[in-house]
Design a protein around this nucleic acid. Sequence first.
RNA 1: GCGGCUGUAGUCUAGUCUGGUUAGGACUUGGGCCUUCCAAGCCUACGACCCGGGUUCAAAUCCCGGCAGCCGCACCA
Length: 573
Amino acid sequence: MKNDEVMNIAKKRGFLWSSFEIYSGVAGFFDYGPLGATLKNNIMNKWRKYYVVSEGFYEIESPTIMPEEALKASGHVDHFTDPMTECKDCLEVFRADHVINDATGKDVEGLENEELSRILSEEKLSCPRCGGHLTHVWSYNLMFQTVIGSKGKKTGYMRPETAQGIFIPFKRLLRFNRGKLPFGVVQMGKAYRNEISPRQGVIRLREFTQAEVEIFVDPRNKNHPNFREVSDDILNLYSSESQIKETDPSKLTAQQAVKEKIISSEILTYQLCLAQRFLRDLGIPDKVIRFRQHLSSEMAHYAIDCWDVEIKTDSFGWIEIIGIADRTDFDLKSHSKHSKEDLRVFIEYSEPKKVTKMVAKPQMKKFGPLFKADAPKIMEALKNLDASDIKESLEKKGNYPIEIDGTIHNLTPDLIEFQEVEETLRGEKIYPHVIEPSYGIDRIIYSVLLHCFGKEEDRTILKLPADIAPVEVNVFPLVNKEELTHIAQEIKKQLRKQGFIAEYDASGTIGRRYARSDEIGVPYAVTIDHNSLEDNTVTIRNRDDSKQVRIPIKEVYNILGDLIDLKIKFQDL
RNA sequence: GCGGCUGUAGUCUAGUCUGGUUAGGACUUGGGCCUUCCAAGCCUACGACCCGGGUUCAAAUCCCGGCAGCCGCACCA
């Protein structure tokens, strides 16, 4: 269905509406209504079944407010910005780097604002629109800033992604996973970006929900042990090559994609397949799904391969709803550097390696009295120096100068004895690489609504898969007569007792109630009619084709349970 | 952030130009009647001038500002 129709029904039926409506609303913020919030929970729980249950990745939850240092390390404070310049005459705002690039062809990405300002004036660049004067360049940071603590000494930001909350406690997570790669950690939660002018409804929110997975792997092994399970999945791949050559996306099996090196690794391909399976399970048809590879020019500098899962929409074109990237070791390295914590993983060799190396052993009898307090420091320094260099210098020049706290000490051959030692290396420390599937939950919900809504004649049916439908079953007396309503009420009560989300409705005609029920995607309706009085049976109506089957009341609960858990199909009843 | 257009019940809309009675209708929704299977009918009720300021005896109507939506530009690590 079309965007407008879907959003109208979503608003009317309590899925989604813009926030703060009675105060005119604020762009970029949406409420989930009663059905929307339930649908969102169902989808998020289904996501957990994929990643937490099946893949075995544990979920964590970290704060949405983060201190400046953490986001400085991640690069967001300095680089999650756009360099802007404004025309003094027509007040138009431009990306400064784009103005320079367009006018001169120079690639100025990543340059400082001062540098950009200098280039603007040196090149005598003026407003591309009216030719007016451009102001100095300023950074527009997309993060919401706040203050931590009452004295306001500490700057904080609302997190722009949930991923950082996984990288920062990496040491603890590694320990939880008993020090072994690979392992994955997930986080679902809100993230915030102060978009300049969000105008695509729920597609571009200033506060949105992400579901992110960070899979930490040994960079030398990006295969996946269960790849065979997905190797025949067919992926609609829009590679960077076909984008450049302007050819159509091609459908390949996962196996072909790896073999032909279209996707950089098995593990990344596996994640693409998983994403596709998840979307299928939400009722999104394959024909509106494609995987678009980032062009090397648009890829973040820390990624080596990145694929967006895109969904076709009528009013926004192909939109990104999931990004699956190989982020390499960028984040862990950067947090290591800024925090001075060693975020590497010790990888044990399958066979310990024996290496022989030269060691410089100080002769302590002479060494101690000669250097006194500096002796321990010199010994420490010796450990980090290449012993063969020292040996060479001693043999050739007769001495080896070493600087400790500004004082130069001369080592002479009589102070050092050299030994060849055999060392056993059991492994090495490395930064793991990170494979990151990052889901935009709000966009996924929009896609589900967009592609599950269908029109049949003059009625609208929301064909949600039964296991994510917010209301699972409706109970209707055929007509509003006491002998039927009391049975219906009783069945509803029993359904609720057994954990179903069930509603009862006796208003108006039965057709009207079915229509309302279809519009909010209730998969099944139990109808109590006059036969029910005689033989204790009711009908179960299937939303998608309005067909009904008659079954004994006492079997209703088990059958509905199996239907909703997708264990049986309605057609097989 | 810039320009254009727009803003009346949950929805669609009349009225706005040319200021003046109780802001009218349809659908939806609630209650009732009727009704033995897909938005039928009848009765009845609830429900609105985006917000703020100005002009005026009087503002849904005219003017200014804000907010939001749509379209175009720009932006979207």
